[in-house]
Design a protein around this nucleic acid. Structure first.
Lengths: 193, 193
DNA sequence: GTCATTTCTTAACTTAAGTGAACGAGTTGC
DNA sequence: GCAACTCGTTCACTTAAGTTAAGAAATGAC
């Protein structure tokens, strides 16, 4: 379990055994059951998450309807905007599957960053990469139709379509579940002839 | 002109006269005419932009149609994703209005950051804030209809609707110019009675 | 296993966005 | 001034998404 995290980190920085031990002593690993709610709307938190195994999602409740806006799977990190803005959360975070994650809080990160410049450098690189990736995702979303977005997802994250309920995928694609059903039917038709 | 930048920076860090002079010596200020293209598709660059006055936009050309995905106005910074990924740019950047901007390259930033830890801290805060803000913008986009998105823009960036051509706003809202015309007509109707 | 609940699909209908074309207002160039 | 262009709007028509409702399929609880 720990090795998954260290392997990931080794892509960005090299870690000594001592540094690894300090990370381990922080007791950040958690196993969470499917359906567990990690964060609720209105709640304040300083916690960030990193998914080692499984899948978590972010969703809003608008007019008593769930609107899923993000899925985080293996090797993906999530720092809720409310941690940065220091305001109550606008959305929920819950586990789509039984998952293994790390949970760290921002005070803890500040302390580690000051002790280990390496760690700080890694965070900076990760944040910049994430910003660029998210910018591109948003651009793709804006410039394509629901059907194109579904096909795009099928190509880039085919696993999501298998492991996540359709109604959650629908709002992730910016449409209603009924529309997603039709999109899928339309595509299946085309592939037949 | 310089003071606009220093005032902005002073919200995050305090600068000595010496530090200000070093920044000035880098010769990063540019005035650019409306229509100037700062970056072309396929081009490689290490440049980041910060708008002191005016407006620049990012757009893709897809099937020989412009798709505008972002506008950057006073006190907004833009580091193209291609600078982070070190690949050719997927989009264009051009000036919507005569503008005053700063142009800095990533080597320069690396050097300043290593000399002035303060600057590095500011960059980190800015990047994290931007990531959170962008995440929320994307979520709002996904969870709302074209009409709601237009109303949202009217509330949050009313200036944009005045200073930017409608056809550029349309793709920014994820729709065609004809649809934006209808949305506007619909809203005007509602306000009459 | 059965029952209850949740999730997915289908259908009929409504509403809005995409498409192709035309028109007028406003610019720009010469 | 006039022609050429750009831009925004409108229209008629097509296509697709939203809505409401019903039922089938899958899942979970016991």
């Amino acid at each position: 379990m720990e090795n998954i995290l260290f392997d990931f980190m080794s892509k960005y920085i090299s870690l000594t055994e001592e540094e690894k031990n300090i990370l381990l002593s922080l007791d950040i690993f958690r196993t969470v059951k499917k359906g567990t709610i990690l964060l609720k709307e209105g709640q304040k938190t300083k916690e960030s998450y990193f998914v080692l195994k499984g899948c978590i999602r972010t969703y809003y409740v608008i007019d008593s309807e769930e609107k899923t806006t993000g899925f985080y799977t293996e090797m993906e990190a999530l720092t809720p905007p409310c941690v940065v803005s220091k305001t109550p959360s606008e959305y929920y975070i819950s586990c789509v599957e039984d998952s293994i994650i790390t949970v760290s809080n921002s005070d803890m990160e500040t302390e580690i960053n000051s002790k280990f410049p390496k760690f700080d450098i890694m965070c900076k690189i990760l944040t910049e990469e994430l910003l660029a990736k998210q910018r591109i995702d948003f651009d793709e979303f804006k410039t394509s139709s629901p059907e194109q977005r579904y096909l795009n997802l099928l190509e880039k994250r085919p696993d999501l379509i298998q492991r996540v309920p359709q109604y959650q995928l629908a709002s992730y694609l910016g449409i209603k579940p009924e529309s997603l059903s039709r999109v899928r039917a339309r595509i299946a038709d085309k592939n037949k002839g």
